[in-house]
Computed example of a mutant assay.
Amino acid sequence: MKRKAFSPHDDVYIQYLRNMEKHDMPVQHYHDGYEIFLMLGGKRYLFYDNICFTLERGDMAVLRPFDIHYAQSRDAEYYERFVLNFSETALSALLSREELRLLREKLVPCVVHLNEEQTELMLDFFKRVNGYFEKSGFLSEKLQHTALIQLVMYVVECTQGEQTVGGRQIPAQIRTALTYINQHYRDNPGLEEIAGACNVNKYHLCHTFKEITGATVLEYLNNVRLSKAHSLLMDTGYSMEEIARETGFSSSLNLTRVFKKAYGMAPTQFRKRKESMR
């Protein structure tokens, strides 16, 4: 399976899955839109924001665009979930810029537990969105966007002031490595430098980092650099040279090579395609 840091979707992607076998993501990844993950049964382990969350029925994760995350089965043989990915473009058909800004402030990243009544109602919203996006015809697009906005607003309602699901902190040396990478990715640090910052042997760091996060140290570093480059392409008018400098690539040519390998197109092509969709 090809390992990619970026998992692209259309403006809206929704999927129900009941998996009776163990399954680990091939690599940590991110999306260019929001993700809402609703756990319906079994158990799933989510690595996000330096914490490993154990997700069971009623647990819901809300992730922002470009948030790097990773999920795995570990000891669990079964899990059932709904997942929804959507961009702000999907909401802009019915919401004004000011409404989108307010929603952005309220749709905060978190992992929360819903009670059974909330879980069933949230499931109904997911099913409704899924049903509308499987249909076409008269007013189907307006119904799709209306159902999506209703789901998102209920997510906001359920996450306001709720207690975060408990997760276990990852080992201190891995937290140090993640923090160091997130702070110094512009400098493109090497494995020896990262291990030195953690005061551990690089071989021990490599083994533990992969076991905990699902990615090698250098894969994670590259994922961070790519996610930052991706965000700058979408949200700024920076030149390729400026983006390369801001994200730790040695040159715009190096940025283009790595970006094209990950996304299947040059960054300039990617920017043009995104601009044409707005």
Rank of each mutant, 00 (worst) to 15 (best):
F82C: 01
Y132F: 05
E246K: 13
F209D: 09
Q173P: 00
R128T: 09
Q169K: 14
P189T: 07
S252C: 08
E192G: 04
E21K: 15
T213R: 13
K4Q: 12
I181Q: 04
E242C: 04
R168K: 13
L91K: 02
V111A: 03
V224M: 12
S136M: 02
R57Y: 02
R175K: 14
N223W: 06
E241L: 06
L205N: 12
M122C: 01
M265Q: 12
D10M: 05
V112C: 00
H207W: 14
G264Y: 14
K228H: 15
S239I: 09
V224P: 06
T176A: 08
H31W: 06
E56L: 02
E275C: 07
S87I: 01
K22I: 08
L100D: 03
H9F: 14
I181Y: 09
R273L: 13
R3P: 03
H69F: 15
E116W: 04
R278V: 10
L233A: 05
F209C: 11
D124Y: 05
G264H: 10
A195N: 07
E117D: 12
P171R: 09
E241R: 12
S276K: 14
E242Y: 08
S251L: 03
A172C: 02
V108T: 10
F86L: 02
N188E: 00
N19W: 12
V224C: 09
F270T: 03
R101Y: 15
A93R: 03
V129N: 00
A195P: 06
P189Q: 04
S96L: 06
S251Y: 03
V129R: 02
K127T: 09
Y45C: 01
M25H: 12
V156R: 06
E193P: 05
L103K: 06
E105D: 12
H207L: 14
S73C: 11
E56T: 15
T54Y: 08
S227H: 11
F66S: 04
P171W: 11
F47W: 08
Q173T: 10
P8C: 11
Y45M: 08
R271A: 13
V12I: 15
N182H: 13
I212W: 14
L221F: 11
R175Y: 05
A90F: 01
I243K: 07
N199Y: 15
T119W: 03
Y34H: 13
E141G: 03
I14S: 00
Q118T: 05
Y30N: 05
I174F: 11
Y238K: 12
G131H: 01
T268A: 14
N182E: 13
S136C: 02
S140D: 04
H204K: 15
Y238G: 00
V165K: 05
Y79E: 08
D10S: 12
T213L: 14
N130M: 01
P267N: 07
N50V: 01
H69K: 11
C52H: 06
L139Q: 05
Y70D: 07
E246P: 01
E35P: 01
V155Y: 01
C198Y: 10
R104T: 13
Y79V: 03
A93H: 03
I212F: 15
T216I: 11
R245A: 15
E120L: 11
G137N: 01
T236G: 06
